[in-house]
Nucleic acid binder design. Structure first.
Lengths: 344, 344
DNA sequence: TATAATTAAGCAATCGATTGCACGTAAATA
DNA sequence: TATTTACGTGCAATCGATTGCTTAATTATA
């Protein structure tokens, strides 16, 4: 009684019934009479009974724990997805275990194993940048444990996934820039084999083509897409005297780097150069001018991912056809691409 | 064997020994011979044995789960602390359950209870804004379950806590502003009973006093400290024609709001008005001009909090004197308070 | 050789909740 | 009145690992 140690046995003893009856009463089993249920519930309250999820998990095989694996917990995008996942999990009485791969393959493998040992009921993950072998995820699938990937996904696994339409997002940005009068659009991309950057590049190319604007490889800059990379790429373009009237970066950070250089070099944004990023990082609305970007719907991506996960969890084996959900990104138009005195 | 279902009993059976021996062998118990240990470990590998943490948790009473409760998972500060906590927990084979109070009292109470039911070995929390009753945390302490608070703490609980020296941080900012020539410093604070804002206010007051500058209540604006609140406060000051030459906001967001209004109204930053925030939100380095602020050492706060937690967990009852750790904040001086043409 | 001391491993209870099966009583049907 | 049918509970096994107490086997000591 003192230490919240009350178990169903204590309740049973007090009421002169058995633990089974108490268990059933608490779980609202129809085989138990209303009268007994009321008594049990009352006594449970009186003894300050707290169900032991561990015991229940052992017996039932359901831990009500879901493992979430992200590259880093403190990147806005990921923490927002985690928030979205937790929102849903919470309403279903599931708890979220968060773990980080630090974008490392080995760590990712270890973490998946650790989550499995913790007996999570399933795993939601976003793959580390340099992961190219997926056996650890295959193992999860082989065990029949629900797995859902988001954002950083792979085609090498038959698994449900939730992504945004990177192609569309990029296409919309470039379309918007072209309609704003731009024809020489610099693009920052990454050499990494991650699908998201390739899709964005395709969106860029297709938007140009659809408007009859030639694709110029000189305008495409590859880098790691960090702020400093954005600066370097921009300086590189300027130094080579490559003509350009807009910059579309696959990353907000690199866009920010470009903005810094552009301002330092005296370019007016958006009058002389329009600038757009990707990701809708919080800072993009606070720069001067605020940066046009693509919102990745991170919280709702978390929601959808969690919903996909739970439907998998409940359906069991029924439909083992992996679902691929593609969310529509949202073009966020800000001052960096809004010119009151259009060039055309 | 197929589904990674191997248990210690399976290992025992194969080796013609008992599960107890297997358990002891796997836990490197000295009572087991080296020979047997080797055999067990080999067989465990062969059967692809994965320890069941749930079963172990039930028997041992240690879940190796630690509950982390934050107001919102997707605020940079909190997600960074979570990252810091996970870093440490991970090295000790503990898993981190993340949950959010959404800054609501009721949700916080419910969540603490849910974590308790999940049988976490302890809880790390940052209190919701409008929590004024602490019975739910008292309950945790009464049960002898380790509890550590960080950042948003309270003095009403005899509990270990990790905070930064908000007083010092604020003092340093105001000292810096005064040395930059400011004497009429607006301060944005919160009416909420959270210690952090009160401490920052004290730092503000003391710095003024130490420089012989009178405290003017008119310069202190109370609000919720969101961006919009910062705008309103700033507009309010300007509209009332209250003279001022600097703004020190207890929140970076409100500082950003102030910056927007100041720029709209034609004030030059930092030439006419210096501006400083608190928190070192990522965006503060990307504004124009970048905003001087106070770094809260979020990741290392997470590290320290976790370390405090684990020492509590290991010491047990020995030293039940709560530890209060105060981290030194770091003043990050940026252009918003660096005037090349000082007024004095 | 007999007894004590070590060493290695087994036995069985336990953690707390769940659940298939069995059982007794009361109500319903033949 | 005899026999089903329901209904409400109890019994006991189970989930997998841990651990105090024994027991058996080996070695050391008297």
């Amino acid at each position: 009684m003192k230490k919240g140690k009350a178990t169903i046995h204590d309740i049973a003893e007090k009421l002169n019934i058995t633990a089974s009856t108490v268990s059933r009463a608490l779980n609202d089993n129809p085989r138990i009479s209303e009268k007994t249920k009321k008594q049990v519930i009352k006594m449970a309250k009186q003894l300050n009974y707290q169900p032991n999820h561990i015991a229940s998990a052992l017996r039932s095989g359901k831990s009500k724990l879901i493992g979430v694996l992200v590259p880093t917990a403190n990147r806005n995008f990921f923490s927002s997805v985690v928030r979205g996942i937790e929102e849903i999990a919470n309403t279903l009485d599931y708890k979220v275990i968060i773990s980080q791969s630090y974008d490392g393959y080995k760590k990712e493998v270890d973490t998946v194993e650790a989550l499995l040992n913790a007996r999570v009921d399933g795993i939601i993950a976003s793959i580390a940048k340099n992961t190219e072998i997926f056996d650890h995820f295959k193992k999860v699938l082989d065990k029949g444990i629900p797995l859902v990937l988001f954002d950083r996904v792979t085609n090498e696994l038959e698994v449900s996934q939730v992504v945004i339409d990177d192609y569309l997002g990029a296409y919309q940005v470039v379309d918007h820039l072209i309609k704003g009068g731009c024809t020489r659009i610099v693009h920052f991309t990454s050499p990494k084999k991650i699908n998201i950057y390739k899709d964005r590049l395709r969106g860029y190319e297709d938007a140009l083509r659809d408007h009859g604007i030639p694709f110029d490889p000189e305008l495409v800059q590859e880098s790691n897409l960090q702020l400093e990379d954005g600066r370097n790429s921009m300086e590189n373009i300027i130094q080579k005297s490559i003509s350009f009237d807009a910059v579309f970066s696959s990353s907000d950070y690199a866009a920010m780097g470009a903005m810094q250089v552009l301002k330092e070099e005296g370019f007016k944004i958006p009058e002389q150069v329009m600038l757009a990023g990707f990701g809708n990082e919080p800072f993009t609305s606070f720069t001067d001018p605020p940066i046009t970007t693509v919102d990745q719907k991170s919280i709702s991506m978390g929601n959808v991912t969690a919903e996909t996960f739970f439907s998998l969890l409940n359906n069991g084996k029924k439909d083992d056809v992996p679902q691929k959900t593609v969310l529509k990104p949202e073009l966020i138009i800000r001052k960096s691409t809004q010119n009151n005195n259009p060039k055309i």
